[in-house]
Design a protein around this nucleic acid. Structure first.
Lengths: 210, 210
DNA sequence: TTAGCCATTGGCCACCCGGCCAATAGGCCT
DNA sequence: AGGCCTATTGGCCGGGTGGCCAATGGCTAA
């Protein structure tokens, strides 16, 4: 539980909302042991800033303009597998937690936790370097949680746009019958009775994004 | 541009994310002329806190557990029409801006604005007591923006659940033909070619909430 | 008042949907 | 090797979808 070193933990914040960033920076700077060395509001500058500063811990939001935080996480882990990235987001969607952890996040905390919990999580990923999954669930439903395959997600993204099975088939270069099979699988996995409901469930679960 | 009084503007913050609340409180307290006198994280305590402290300006988020911020706004304006409420939210949906202003918000700023803009907005609604609409658009699409009637929103909320026109008719006590007419109107207004796409557009525009 | 939107209802019709039957083939874990 | 998941494709069929034709009464903004 003792600090790894005596100097402050160097943090970098990535969040697309200036108000949130400034607030966070203020909050963390006021806490002993933390030092905010960089900030970014989009994917590009997040990567650039990370490469330049190499912070001890990167606090990463998921919803970013351009490509999302999970993509940023993947790229960072690709070039520095030992990087400590703590996802800090307002999304409580299982899908986001799952993808983040799969992509190598050191932890996942939602903005619905108390600041103290956040502080502890930051220290946790820095010192223990271990995984701290904070899946705070408040709105969380008891999802049965069958995950969609890549193909199915692809199909769902066409379904949401109102395409018919035939059109989906044409767009993906498969028969309409196959598109139908994918849609059926989606309905079953999401517990939906119609494609319309599947779209709703997709949004609710975070598989589909606005 | 001079202050209405010499004392600090008394603020109350309502946001369901502790991290955001703490950050905001820190940020605002560090700014001369502002004093955070109360905070709340849900609708009930927001109303209770407002009645007790009667802040000069209430910073209100829309997404709250239980009933949403717009409802809180309505109740406050009902019992104190002169109350100064500045919506501070991450939602850039036209629908939310529209409803907020219609409900009597003194202003609407998104969390994607710079802190300085937020400070200015707070001073604005306090001093001038005027309406400061800050519809910062970054992700905003050029919505043609036809609003759905009450009935149509009701129907859309059934459509999203996967109900057929016949079922919608039964649930609303109207003929299936009428339900169809409503769905057709929804499709036209949202620029959708199928009910599935209408659901997507509904989520994108903030008419439907997760 | 005239215009326009809203809620309501009807039929015709080509097309789409989704469940059920069944099959082949590749990949991965045990 | 056998089991399980995934991707692929086929037909049959009752029921749903959405555009088009047209109509009524109420309510509101110009």
């Amino acid at each position: 539980m003792r600090a790894k070193t005596d100097r402050a933990i160097r943090l970098m914040l990535v969040d697309d909302h200036p108000v949130m960033r400034a607030g966070l920076a203020n909050l963390l700077s006021g806490e002993p042991g933390f030092s905010v060395v960089a900030q970014a509001s989009d994917a590009r500058s997040a990567l650039a800033g990370w490469r330049e500063h190499r912070p001890d811990v990167l606090l990463l939001d998921i919803s970013l303009p351009g490509l999302d935080g999970i993509e940023v996480l993947r790229q960072i882990k690709a070039e520095a597998p030992q990087a400590h990235v703590l996802m800090l987001t307002s999304s409580e969607a299982k899908e986001d937690v799952r993808q983040s952890m799969a992509a190598g996040a050191a932890g996942y905390v939602t903005k619905s936790v108390d600041p103290d919990v956040l502080f502890a999580a930051i220290r946790g990923v820095f010192e223990r370097q271990g995984v701290v999954a904070q899946g705070e669930s408040r709105t969380e439903r008891d999802d049965v949680g069958e995950t969609l395959s890549q193909r199915e997600q692809e199909v769902l993204n066409l379904v949401r746009q109102g395409f018919s099975n035939g059109e989906i088939g044409r767009l993906l270069g498969i028969s309409r019958r196959t598109a139908r099979a994918h849609v059926s699988a989606i309905l079953r996995k999401l517990g939906a009775s119609a494609r319309t409901e599947a779209v709703t469930r997709g949004f609710e679960r975070g598989i589909l994004k606005i």
